[in-house]
Nucleic acid binder design. Sequence first.
RNA 1: GCGGACGUGGCGGAAUUGGUAGACGCAAGGGACUUAAAAUCCCUCGAUCCUCGAUCGUGCGGGUUCGACCCCCGCCGUCCGCACCA
Length: 881
Amino acid sequence: MATERYNPRASEPRWQKAWDEAKLFETKNDDPRPKYYVLEMFPYPSGRIHIGHVRNYTMGDVVARWRRAMGYNVLHPMGWDAFGLPAENAARDNKVNPRDWTYANIATMKAQLKTMGLSLDWAREFATCDPSYYKHQQKMFLDFWRSGLVERKSAKVNWDPEDMTVLANEQVIDGRGWRSGALVEQRDLTQWFFKITSMSQDLLDSLDTLDKWPEKVRVMQANWIGRSEGLLIRWRLAEATAPQGETELEVYTTRPDTIFGASFMAVAADHPLAKRAAENDPALAAFIEDISHMGTSAAELETAEKKGFDTGIRVVHPFDDSWTLPVYVANFVLMDYGTGAIFGCPSGDQRDLDFANKYGLPVVPVVMPEGGDAKTFQIIDEAYGDDGVMINSRFLDGMAPKQAFDEVATRLSGVTVGNRPQGERKVQFRLRDWLISRQRYWGCPIPVIHCEACGAVPVPSDQLPVELPAEVSFDKPGNPLDHHPTWKHVDCPQCGKPAKRDTDTMDTFVDSSWYFARFTDPWNQESPTTPNYADGPNGWMPVNQYIGGIEHAILHLLYSRFFTRAMKVTGHLSEVKEPFEGMFTQGMVVHETYRLGSGPNARWVQPVEVKIEDVDGKRSATLIADGSPVDIGPIEKMSKSKKNVVDPDDILASYGADTARWFMLSDSPPERDVIWTEAGVEGAHRFVQRVWRLVSETAPALRGVAAKAASEGEAGVLSKAAHKTVKAVGEDIGRLSFNKAVARLYELINTIQPPAAALASGKADATGAAALRQAIEMLVLMIAPMMPHLAEECWSALGGEGFVANQRWPEFDPALTVDNDVVYPVQINGKKRGDLTIARDADQGTVEKAVLALDFVQKALDGKPPRKVIVVLQRIVNVVA
RNA sequence: GCGGACGUGGCGGAAUUGGUAGACGCAAGGGACUUAAAAUCCCUCGAUCCUCGAUCGUGCGGGUUCGACCCCCGCCGUCCGCACCA
């Protein structure tokens, strides 16, 4: 029977419109059903969606639609991470207003997302650049400030000379700005910080509760927080050598046990003691000047030589008044970790050893491997940092390092230097406070007014939001808000005298640190959240399943975790501790690269310009335009420079959303990279057509047939396959194993097809038709979360009521998911030699008897009794001859 | 250097977590239908040996076990994150 091909171009817009009109995906806050909050990381409105968005939002949509079908009240919102530098760059380059540029991009991208058929609640949409959004952010900034979670302080900060702004530590990658790629400089500036370090311990501890997060992300966060336990030791300066007024040097160490292996002290170039010592020592001052210009990139650090300069200052060993050690300024000591000073133990640390060897300092081994000989154990050019036994360490000799640690800590805590203990146990974190000031225009203004008399004064809440000025010029480099002729000039809210607004805006990562909470009630104009809807007993938070890229494993996820805690402190949230209960990091979409020509004239060409041929497995490529040969290059992340990009619009227009969605879910596990291939997309499209053909060819014969499972015969086989698939696909989607769910659906359609063909040609009885009807209905309901338009089309062809999107997920009959007979593989000495089909409930003895009666088993045993017969019920039989 | 993940056909990947390795898809080869093409359908598709069949086979080398892609020990390789962090 000839059937018309399925035409997504006609079908998809029709269903999208129908869903919209029925307001199908608008979620109500007051709903008695159990809640489920699915969220994909919202996009930056750069102009057009890219293929990575398609993958991300397809996955989220499958989860959302499936949860709906499972009876949940699902929240699945979408918005725009709309502040950021690209808008300013576009404004500067194209003479457009950043606001206009941003909202135009949002309109374009929203239209693109609509063509994907996502079950999004657009009624909750907002952009972070809407004053109605950032108003609340400004309010929370002031609340945080009042609660002691904000600090304005002078600090050495990362300055990106290209983007002309400061950056947070997390935004500096290999010494370069995360967006501009420019080498970051260090500057002393007074800036606003969120005191994320006040929550270090909790942010670390709570990682253990996030059992639905990828292990990898939790480990990355733990490393970033970087907790270590050590001892703060105050070393007395030898009086004769100390600069006036200086009496001690504070050092942080995680290895106080190695204190008898100490042979020098080293301080950072910008350590106060170094500066004091340099005052009367021009050579030292020159040295400090020299090393502070050193690069900080990973590559430079790798090759950088250890350099030091003896300050002439000496410290006294805590356990021996007659033992003094020199204090160096050294280039490998960092001011912003610990106290900016270390004691060097060359035998236990490779850096210290390199340094000691260079400057002729003593190397005393203090830890040797278990079972070593203390008399002969030596350290020459390789330090020993592992566990072992203490040697050459007086009262510590023979102890394990851990024990020695405690001993030193105890002894030093009993001694005082000045009026403080000489040693104090201390927990140190690597995490720094979050610097949020940005010297940019297109961001959320920091709602503070600086008054000469009153200092930094909060903008009164009735004057919020502090809105960005509409007219702005990008003619001069630097901060446009600062250059604005009138905007910053205001009166002090406290004393009324002329004052100035803070012209910095907040890091855009602040915007994305709480948008998920705003989605729970974006209509509330009075406050950021509404207690009942946010996280009360009936609230939406936490997000049950969050999906996004691994690139946000630290930045965005850590900031959001901090923000959630800070919102709780300030009363904007009440119960929830973690924002994201489940986190999933999806892989990238990658593509082959194509290169035309060779040498300096070579250029990359786009996939659409290339024709690929495959003869006997040998692939070759030519340029469509003129047939010239093209080299097929490695598979890489899609990038403009390599031109290996595919435009989602092209795919959606030629194949339709369902094909694109199905392809995204097939084959590759979602956490891994997926290779975009034309052949793969065509394979997906074939499946779309196959489902349609199956449904449209059987629908006439199935009209009026009531779905009913069969338990026996061929129809029984079909029913069992269908019910098993329902069980498995549900489990797979629940685990986000979409590729496995897809494979099972292929298997099911392969099983359905022969009986469907028989039915279409009139060769099916009533039982068969009923079973077929059920299997096909189940298939349609199961593909609905993945290919929603096709599923609607099939549902209506089958005469189904209403939208398939409103149907419940099919229920399987557990009795039909198991077979009456089991096929046991029969092994002889661990190798499969045949199989045995026997009743499922056959017991151990029965199976064993039946196996031993088998021809090939008899033959293998050759009349002798088996040494052993292992029967694992429902699994396998192994005969040991 | 520290931490993590991974290694299975020509390719993407399955394997109920110790029980038939290679499901499912892609690519390829052969055939059917067709004047032809598209679409569709059928067959083959880890390697070796001459077929039935057998032997080998999950990065490499050992081990545990009736049985190992899975567990243990020792290597090799790839990818990712962090890094003069004291």
